[in-house]
């Protein structure tokens, strides 16, 4: 194994280094605490998970709110989690009869079933379509992509299958036996989080195996950028992802996943081992921690903004 360099174990982590957002608690919910200073946007902290079948419009953040886009430019940009950086331009939705409890109820397959203050049919003046953005979450097999997505998604991560069929015509047959399916489909997980200002953020996990790289164009098209998750025990697994985003000029950050809340290696050692250029942000993260996930995503969006400014200049 090429990593860690033999001296880094002694030089580096005696007792383990603490990531910036440490201590990592075992309970994910508690880690989200730094946000306590900020007024909760959706009436009571983390929005409850809900079935996507119930429809996102039940959540508070989906209520028609004035889009803050125009005036947000004066707002705080370099905010960090915990800073009370609630953009003034994103007021709490008003048409909202406060229904934390109601929206918490598991909503069955039939939308509009019951309690929520949601009309059975769409009103004429229904909310405008959300602005949709997305971030790609890449990394090797079992590095924690789905956990990372799930730690922040409003809905439990969904799984979709892309059609290898398009690219493997002639392989399938009408009576296809089930053990062929692994060669004809490729699965990927994704999640969604509603943000103030009628904004939806999708998080798409890349299919784990390298041979599905062709799909990444689809995922990366129009994305804000990518998070490359790294498991320091299996560094080489993230090489394809780093190569991909680097070669295409797509903004990406490298998140070194700390599986037990303990960083085994110094970031500069990981950077050197991965040969990642200095301008690529690299940080510790913990896929299970909402706070750490947030911080990783923030680093990415900030990078994307820097690149956009730089490109425009």
């Amino acid at each position: 194994m090429a990593f860690p360099p033999s001296d880094s174990a002694t030089r580096g982590a005696s007792g383990g280094m603490s990531p910036a957002w440490a201590p990592v608690s075992q309970t994910v919910g508690a880690v989200g605490a730094p946000a306590a200073g900020a007024p909760a946007p959706a009436a009571g902290g983390n929005p409850p998970r809900q079935s996507v079948l119930g429809g996102g419009r039940n959540t508070a953040t989906d209520a028609p709110a004035p889009r803050p886009v125009a005036s947000a430019s004066s707002g705080p940009v370099t905010s960090v989690p915990g800073a009370s950086a609630q953009p003034a331009a994103a007021p709490r939705p008003v048409a909202q009869p406060v229904p934390t409890q109601q929206s918490q109820q598991p909503i069955a397959t039939a939308p509009g079933a019951g309690s929520a203050p949601q009309p059975a049919t769409k009103p004429a003046g229904q909310p405008a379509a959300p602005t949709v953005t997305k971030i790609v979450v890449a990394g090797g097999f079992a590095v924690g992509k789905t956990t990372f997505i799930g730690s922040i998604s409003d809905v439990d991560p969904l799984n979709t299958e892309a059609a290898m069929t398009e690219h493997s015509v002639g392989v399938d047959d009408a009576g296809g036996v089930s053990d062929r399916k692994t060669t004809t489909t490729v699965a990927m997980d994704f999640g969604r989080v509603a943000l103030p200002g009628n904004l939806w953020l999708y998080l798409f996990g890349t299919p784990g195996q390298d041979r599905f790289l062709f799909m990444w164009d689809d995922l990366a098209r129009g994305a804000i950028g990518a998070v490359v998750l790294v498991d320091t025990d299996r560094l080489e697994q993230c090489f394809p992802a780093i190569d991909y985003f680097e070669s295409r000029g797509i903004p990406f950050v490298v998140g070194v996943n700390c599986f037990d809340g303990v960083a085994k290696h110094r970031l500069e050692d990981v950077r050197e081992a991965l040969q990642v250029p200095a301008h690529v942000p690299m940080l510790y993260t913990d896929a299970r921690s909402r706070a750490a996930t947030k911080q990783t995503l923030i680093a990415l969006v900030q990078l994307a903004m820097r690149q956009l400014r730089g490109g425009a200049a």
Partner: peptide, 28 residues
């Protein structure tokens, strides 16, 4: 049809949208 593979504005997203995303994530 935004993805050119060159330049940094590949996503076609505006700065103001990114700003809203940033503030939104921060406030989660």
């Amino acid at each position: 049809n935004v993805h050119t593979g060159h330049g940094s504005s590949h996503s076609g997203l505006s700065l103001s949208v990114l700003e809203s995303v940033l503030n939104g994530i921060s406030a989660l």
